[in-house]
Amino acid sequence: MKIFKNKQFYKFLIVLLYTSFFLSISLTGNFKIFVKKFYFPYILLGFLILLFLLKTGIKKLKKFIEISVYDILSFCVFLFPLILFIIVRPNTLPTYTALKRGVHTEFLTHNVLKSLQEKIEEEGKYKKLTIKQLLSFLKSKPEQINGKDVVVEGMVYKENEKFMLIRFLITCCAADATPLGIEVEYKGMKEEPKDYEETHPIPKNIEFKEKEEFKNDDWVKVKGKVKIENDKIVIYAESIEKINQPIDPYLY
């Protein structure tokens, strides 16, 4: 088995493995877990260059260079991320990251106008908004959302008895993801003051699910009324239901 002692063979194998890795994340769309959707052309370009390297690698196989321990070590370095990818089967950036990065309840980028111009769909009486859109409204036209019925999707994140809805905003890749969040309150969440019914705009006779039912990182759809309190958005929920993770887990 002379080929297993040939350094060129291992070089070829690395290129082959990474070519198939790039192919598989492009075909399955899995790359969206890691980088921005619009990054796809770069991945494709990388894949093409790898294909050419593969061709060169085959030609180089004819030449024999004996492998050293260092080469095996660098082969292992290249294997490491791929093995991690296969075993961990990453899903989406967990809300644990939000804890480490700090949740933004205000939108800081000045470039909010674009997201305000996006078309807003409606679901019954509810306006379908993303957390980014809500925070953009909060920054530039808060009066347009205060008191409105909305439906928002996001991940559950509990912090100091607060129930928050989180989405990650991405500029390039998951390393720069910024957690955007809004607070959600629902009846029965904490001990209610006596005048709860008067001060909170929740209709009566709506059954809320037990709060224990929602764990961190669960994807949910919240329907309710927006109220702006202390320059922050709070949604008074009328219903919260579990949903599947969206195809594009991040906001751009």
Partner: peptide
């Protein structure tokens, strides 16, 4: 999960 995603994100 977070470690894997950030590592692979930087690599991809």
């Amino acid at each position: 999960q977070a470690f894997t995603i950030i590592l692979l994100a930087i690599l991809i």
